[in-house]
Amino acid sequence: METIVDLNGVYALAEDLVARDIHGEFIIIPITSGIGESDEEIFSLNEFGKAIWDKLDGKRTLKEVARALSSEFEGAKPEIERDCLGLIEELLKRKMVVKL
């Protein structure tokens, strides 16, 4: 099933994982099974990914998240929106975020 992500959607972090900042690395640790492809995986996000992650409060639309990011990161608005869509699509596939 194809995952559809849209900028007007509101997304929130899934409950079945723990995000930890360990020695400068942002690590996502699944609690329940089915988040990774195997049951041994943990994940990391880069600085930009972490910034998006931090703003997924289940209230703001993705467009609002992208707008907030444009004040923190260099880059044209379409590029920032593209990266937001890209990250959310991947997180949705991995069941790390949910669409509200």
Binding site: E25, I27, I28, E41, S44, L45, N46, G86, L87, R94
Partner: peptide, 9 residues
């Protein structure tokens, strides 16, 4: 865009 936004560790 990067190949993947989420990196497996």
């Amino acid at each position: 865009p990067p190949e993947s936004y989420v990196e497996k560790v």
